[in-house]
């Protein structure tokens, strides 16, 4: 089986600050990847790159055999198809939520995918129930607590039903109950055969069977 995600010799720097150094990586469909490493080693940067938000200064990135370049994502249809297949939960939910209500936030993805309003409503209601945030439906996302925002951003991403789910520090700022919920959710989601990439500082925090641990060092390289 060919790799779903393939990176070869990727380098990336923010102006002069290096963030990724010679990264080569293959991820197969259905794999569970735990990305660890110290602060500032480039985990979030790698996620941005995998989502086609930034592009490597050198090296190549293939998603499902297709090269991901600024040019290939110029095409609206290609871009939509690519983004639909990858879900990305940001480290900071504040910047991820941009709709006036929680309902609209979760409905944004299905509406972009041209779902009918009733199909959208069904999907949103199920997701809000699943994440136990139905009571927040009509609230403004920017007034929610940190944990609530996190759940809303997860719901918003799941609404696209992505093949690959990337979560940047999903346990950050959550209470114990929510942490347990997220861990359960992560194992359930990977059990149905979805590909997952999770970052965490501590490698023991999430113990999922069959997880592959990828570690960054301070020199922005994989070890």
């Amino acid at each position: 089986m060919t790799a779903l995600i393939k990176l070869s010799h990727i380098n990336y720097s923010y102006e002069k600050i290096p963030a990724l150094h010679d990264i080569s990586l293959e991820i197969k469909s259905g794999e569970f990847i735990l990305l660890t490493g110290p602060n500032g080693c480039g985990k979030s940067t790698l996620f941005k790159l995998l989502n086609g938000l930034i592009f490597p200064s050198s090296g190549k990135y293939f998603f499902d055999g297709q090269p991901i370049t600024p040019l290939s994502l110029k095409d609206n249809l290609t871009a939509k198809k690519f983004h639909k297949r990858i879900g990305y939960v940001f480290q900071n939910p504040d910047t991820q939520l941009f709709n006036p209500t929680v309902y609209d936030e979760v409905a944004f993805g299905p509406r972009q995918m041209a779902f009918t309003e009733s199909a959208t409503a069904a999907r949103v209601t199920e997701l809000l129930d699943f994440l136990k945030i139905s009571h927040l439906k009509n609230r403004a996302p920017y007034h929610l607590s940190g944990g609530e925002k996190k759940k809303v951003s997860i719901a918003a991403v799941l609404a696209l039903n992505p093949d690959v789910l990337m979560m940047d520090e999903p346990l950050n700022g959550l209470d114990e109950k929510s942490q347990i919920w997220i861990k359960d959710f992560i194992s359930a989601f990977s059990a149905v055969g979805k590909t997952m990439l999770i970052t965490n500082h501590e490698r023991d925090l999430l113990n999922i069977k069959d997880s592959r641990i990828i570690q960054f060092n301070e020199q922005h390289q994989l070890v």
Partner: peptide, 23 residues
Amino acid sequence: QEYALATHDAMLCRCFTGEYHIS
């Protein structure tokens, strides 16, 4: 500025390519 850039990223990630649907 940071918020604006990150929000734009978030929108791209959710298949935003310029049109905005209002129900």
